[in-house]
Design a protein around this nucleic acid. Sequence first.
DNA 1: GAAGATTGAATACTCAATCTTC
DNA 2: GAAGATTGAGTATTCAATCTTC
Lengths: 179, 179
Amino acid sequence: MADDGVSACYGPASDCEPRWLSADELEAWKAVISLLLLLPGALDAQLQRDAGLSMFEYAVLSSLSISDDRTVRMSELAELASGSLSRLSNVVTRLERRSLVRRIPDPVDGRCTDAVLTDQGWDLVVQAAPGHAAAVRQLVLDPLTDAQVHSLGEAGEQIVRQLRRCPAPRAEATHLQPD
Amino acid sequence: MADDGVSACYGPASDCEPRWLSADELEAWKAVISLLLLLPGALDAQLQRDAGLSMFEYAVLSSLSISDDRTVRMSELAELASGSLSRLSNVVTRLERRSLVRRIPDPVDGRCTDAVLTDQGWDLVVQAAPGHAAAVRQLVLDPLTDAQVHSLGEAGEQIVRQLRRCPAPRAEATHLQPD
DNA sequence: GAAGATTGAATACTCAATCTTC
DNA sequence: GAAGATTGAGTATTCAATCTTC
């Protein structure tokens, strides 16, 4: 139904080739890219102002707060917080300086490091959570109907599933889509 | 329909307060935050590898390529590319060094600066567009049904509309949502 | 030697301050 | 003096190289 033969260009206004984006697809894509470029800044601004945290830092602390013993291995935490291990390591170093997190060597396997949420860290998440939830509500959820929220959730999950399976398209695949 | 009284915590596992996120809302939000943290990296990786561009740089060049005379005032271009003027200015400086864009003072109002896409810049966008479209297709569109694509587009537009109206929630509004 | 994690160098982003033209 | 734009300082992110423990 979306693929009704209407073809629109994403990119230069000429050169419309075989399987370009349909009108619906283009519309969706433009919305997504604006979202990717605008939403993180807006959410970071609220968190930074009210709790001194970035979105990623919040994701880290929040992930720890809902885990057993408030403790998670670094590599697992990176997955939970949707970031690279390297990024996580840097962030945990900063959080450690602020006494929000502690690192301990994993008692079972000395190669692994466990990140532990401190009491201070817990308090900060508990304090920050309502404001953050309100921002998410205001910026993301409130503009949508219940049906749209549900649908957005499902679409997002689909995309993330695909992303985790295959994070970057192969070079060969990028010049003509598989179809 | 989503707000059926089921209450789930986003944040610490205790402290479930009055108007927290419903199960559906929580699900949607987790998907969105993962998207915000994972998708830019994946798209940047493809663009960087195949064209030496970031997603934002691509948005800038692409916006210029579909504009009259391939020319847009900086402040307008910032809007089109969904970035701040400051960020745009830095990026245009880099693009100028690579001869992909030129700056000229606006002939009408000397305070304004016009960004102009060079022939080289045009060629690069034309060359990069198919690969980028394929990546968007593979990572974002293909995992979805046509109906999901359509719905995602509408939801995204709603959220972006809200974002442009009110980029950051007020401090007062963040501790209890307006409802 | 391989898995898990950290570090450092290069690059990019943000915010506030500044500059120019109207 | 205000609008439009740029610059610079401070901070964050990424990638490759390194270190440690198994």
